[in-house]
Write a protein that binds this DNA or RNA. Structure first.
Length: 359
DNA sequence: CTCGTAACGGTTGAT
DNA sequence: GTATCAACCGTTACG
């Protein structure tokens, strides 16, 4: 726990990662972006130095849910036996003391108290009957138990209300973009410049974060939270994919045109820088103490600061972590049309490509 | 060579 | 305040 989660480890591809923790949001976004550009997962894996297993997983999830964000880590399950559910069970039991647990279960579904995703198991209902409703006469004192998530439909609907989320969140995560991207419509945008394209977001991020980031106290909302937050919208309300993606896709597409690509390059650059930093960091020591914030930091230099002073620093970082050894990273697929294209894309990112090729 | 997936060791957060 | 537990993480290795 004291895990300052310092440096993280290096995977077989030379990428830096923190075991047990999600990849930086920026990287996740990049994975999706690159995939959208038609770059193959294996190439994305190599370029970003993220295991193909991870790329596969992230893309699969994205295709499935439209979200690029990691799932909520830790904590207990939403807990289906909410006060409301317990109350209903009690009512059913009262109305019909001889009712079976499975019947209660059916009724919960029929009455819309629960849906198939959060309906308690028969055994749970039995337990509730036993433990909490042993004596019907006793009104449940159980009401107010769970303030949050009273009976969330799918779990995703977390009532989270970030108080001052805005600055902190943005600052801390450095990854909110993902949120914005995927769940722009949610409400999160509260502080967010609204949906905006990925690139924009990234760009924005670059600008915003620095300040925000620097400021934040230390605690971070954590990506997972965000995830949950933005996740909410997907499943239920709007069409997942359609809507979710649209923001992103649209953006990407928008960028797709070569020219645009360059435009969105900054994002790449920064993310790259982030990586570079982490990677190179080893040497420099800059590392990424907390990749999240760090990344933000990096990014801040890159984007926000226009890298002024840090420029050089960045450059060094930019080396894109091309490992010393690795002679020539497979000149990007010799031919695969895609390869070429992708290469451009990648290389498009200033900084990024530069280094690699050299080495 | 690619890519999906299980195993693995890890972190997190609610209970 | 500490332990458990169950969720997720990314990497690795296998197929």
């Amino acid at each position: 726990m004291q895990m300052e989660q310092p440096y993280g480890e290096v995977n077989q591809l030379g990428g830096v990662f923190v075991n047990g923790r999600p990849l930086p949001n920026a990287v996740r976004i990049r994975i999706v972006e690159l995939a959208q550009l038609g770059i193959r997962p294996c190439d994305i894996s190599r370029q970003l130095r993220v295991s193909h297993g991870c790329v596969s997983k992230i893309l699969a999830r994205y295709n499935e849910t439209g979200s690029i964000l990691p799932g909520a880590i830790g904590g207990s399950k939403p807990r289906v036996t909410t006060p409301n559910v317990v109350k209903s069970i009690r009512d059913y039991k009262q109305a019909d003391p001889g009712i079976f647990a499975w019947e209660i279960r059916d009724r919960l579904l029929a009455d819309g108290v629960c849906d198939k995703y959060n309906v308690p198991s028969v055994s749970s209902i039995s337990r509730i009957l036993r433990n909490k409703i042993g004596n019907l006469s006793q009104p449940g004192q159980y009401e107010g138990a769970k303030p949050s998530a009273p009976q969330l439909p799918y779990g995703p609907v977390y009532p989270y209300s970030y108080p001052n989320a805005v600055s902190p969140s943005t600052a801390k995560l450095g990854s909110p973009p993902g949120v914005a991207v995927t769940a722009g419509h949610v409400g999160l945008s509260r502080a967010w410049p609204s949906v905006h394209t990925v690139s924009n977001i990234l760009g924005i991020r670059a600008f915003m974060e620095p300040s925000a980031i620097t400021g934040p106290e230390g605690y971070q909302p954590k990506m997972e939270e965000w995830a949950s937050v933005n996740r909410a919208p997907f499943p239920s309300s709007h069409g997942l994919n359609g809507i979710d993606k649209s923001p992103i896709e649209a953006d990407i597409k928008y960028n797709q045109p070569s020219p645009n690509l360059t435009g969105y390059v900054p994002a790449c650059a920064y993310s790259a820088s982030q990586y570079g930093v982490t990677a190179c960091g080893g040497a420099s020591g800059t590392y990424s103490p907390h990749w999240q914030s760090q990344s933000a930091g990096a990014l801040s230099h890159a984007g926000g600061g226009a890298m002024g002073q840090h420029g050089h620093n960045l450059h060094s970082a930019m080396t894109f972590k091309r490992p010393p050894h690795v002679g020539n990273r497979k000149p990007p697929s010799p031919l695969s049309p895609v390869g070429k294209q992708q290469q451009e894309v990648l290389s498009g990112a200033p900084g990024l490509s530069g280094a690699p090729t050299t080495s």
